[in-house]
């Protein structure tokens, strides 16, 4: 009663162009909300037979036997999370260092072409990474990286057992390569956007560039850099083809990173064409639904972390 007349009065001042523009903007954002909802509904509907047949146990059962029509998602959830974690740890480390170098240390004649090259990495098709991973990286992991890691850290279960070349570590490394451009490019922009007067303030106190970068610039940029990592992690979770080509495609949970594994996205891509029974298809769709939730949970957690960081220094960003 009170809100409506006020709204109408406001609307009278709005020109037709404004109204048209508002309609377009609203339509655009609603369309995407509807798409997400539709996607969710479709996945839920498609996986309904599987949900009915296996119940919530689908999530923690680790058997995946299409012949016996027994399906459990745990190995794929595990493989997805582990490969993505390897990827984000490697990519964050390398990407943040590269971004710091590009934004703070590199002279212009170097940083411009270097940035371009790094962004070019993002344009390489995923299947090309997969081929390279299969023919170059996997053998290299088998003969060099794997034995070296095992030599130093072999006492950890993570680095024990036989080294096949294809496996979760290789999958993680491939993913890292694919998401490094995202981390680097966004972090570089975030760092470059830190006001120059902070750098000058720091320099005027007689500090080295290194001290300025690590004590003033990077802390000021950390929320944005974290956002870059979250975006990259989202891509790692859903990446399909390159991982499928190097992870070994075995639905098993192994402590060793050298062992073959499987990811949610890989199973779907690999087995969809050969899924013959309706419960098989439905189980694959449920994997898609789980991937949807895993991505949402990871993004939610990341957002919570950003909020908690921001909360302590609300005005800083």
């Amino acid at each position: 009663m009170t809100a409506e007349p006020r709204f109408r009065r406001l609307a009278r001042f709005v020109s037709p162009a404004d109204r048209g523009f508002a309609a377009i903007v609203v339509a655009g954002s609603t369309l995407f909300a509807l798409l997400i909802l539709g996607l969710f509904a479709e996945l839920a509907l498609g996986s309904w037979p599987s949900i009915k047949a296996f119940g919530p146990a689908f999530i923690w059962k680790s058997e995946w036997d299409p012949i016996a029509s027994k399906f459990g998602a745990l190995p794929m959830i595990y493989g997805t999370v582990v490969t993505s974690l390897i990827a984000i740890v490697l990519a964050a480390f390398i990407g943040i260092m590269a971004a710091t170098f590009l934004a703070e240390f590199a002279p212009r004649w170097l940083s411009t072409p270097l940035s371009f090259l790094i962004e070019l990495l993002a344009a390489v098709p995923s299947v090309v990474y997969g081929l390279w991973g299969l023919f170059v990286l996997a053998p290299f992991v088998r003969t060099t990286i794997g034995p070296a890691l095992q030599h130093i850290l072999g006492w950890l279960p993570l680095f024990s057992g036989p080294i096949y070349g294809v496996g979760m570590l290789t999958g993680g490394i491939i993913l890292a390569l694919m998401i490094v451009p995202t981390v680097t490019a966004i972090s570089r922009d975030v760092i470059a956007a830190i006001p120059g007067d902070l750098r000058e303030a720091s320099a005027s106190l007689g500090t080295t560039k290194w001290e300025t970068a690590t004590r003033v610039v990077l802390p000021a940029a950390k929320v944005g850099i974290f956002g870059a990592c979250v975006l990259a992690l989202g891509r790692a979770l859903g990446e399909t083809i390159a991982v499928t080509m190097v992870i070994g495609n075995r639905p098993a949970i192994s402590a060793s990173l050298f062992a073959p594994g499987y990811t949610l996205a890989s199973v779907i891509a690999n087995e969809f064409t050969e899924a013959t029974t309706s419960i098989y298809i439905s189980s694959l769709i449920e994997l898609g639904l789980i991937l949807f939730f895993v991505s949402m949970i990871v993004n939610g957690l990341a957002r919570l972390m950003i909020w908690s960081v921001r909360g302590s220094e609300r005005t800083a960003v």
């Binding site: 007067d197 902070l198 000058e200 303030a201 007689g206 004590r215 003033v216 802390p219 000021a220 950390k222």
Partner: peptide, 21 residues
Amino acid sequence: PMAIRRRIGMVFQRPNPFPTL
């Protein structure tokens, strides 16, 4: 130059405290 800047301090036009410290 860093040794010089420790002997010659500077205050800028706009206050620029380090926001994260």
